[in-house]
Amino acid sequence: MNAFMNWFYRMASPPHFYRWSGTAIPWFLVPATVLAVIGLYLALVTSPTDYQMGDTVRIMYVHVPVAWLSLMCYTSMAVASAIGLIWRIKLAHAVAAAIAPAGASLTALALFTGSLWGKPTWGTYWVWDARLTSYLMLLFLFAGFALLRNAFSDVQRGDRAAAILAIVGVVNIPIIHYSVNWWNTLHQPASFSVTKGQAGIDSSMLWPLFTMLFAVTLYLVALVLMRTRNEVLIRERRKAWIKEVLVK
């Protein structure tokens, strides 16, 4: 345990992180691009139409990955915030700050693609059911996090205040996930379930979905690493190691 914590602290030291993340980014970005091209081909060309929805089912291949990963983004942002608060690791706050705009953009995309899916299937772009309303809250939480952090002139105080908001807001994640089971909603229930273990999606549609999901996941890791490096540059600009890195 101690050895792990030591390794963790070393990886999380800003100069060390700055060096390894620089090499790591292409290893995520290149496979993400390749998978995205394959995924787009599968989703738009080879995958079948749905027996009820016809071609609009293709919206699923962007809607589901971005919606699912936006929840992952929020959860990781809250975990990073908690690590930053409890262990006083500066890099953890930098990671949380880097995730927020990425997560917000995914949430906005999920809302946009969802409403374009809702119109031809349900007959409306938007309804105030429990799923859509709680999911809209997620966008406000990401925005609130970024605004609160920027409201402080002192980076450290901004980090801590925003971290508390991130942790408080994490209760919304199970609410979003279970809203379709707990309450009557227009949004359909989840097609995957851990307890039932079955997928309501035919395998010919699962493969494009997983390819896209995997592509966006790799992309997100690369994006968050890039944005965290920027956060590190902002926070450490007066440190000696930055000059050494730049002069080289």
């Binding site: 139409t49 929805m53 089912v57 349900w122 227009l186 035919d202 549609m205």
Partner: peptide, 12 residues
């Protein structure tokens, strides 16, 4: 009237 979709997706 809104249509409510279920969680099943499959080709015809």
């Amino acid at each position: 009237i809104f249509a409510k979709h279920d969680e099943n997706y499959m080709p015809p």
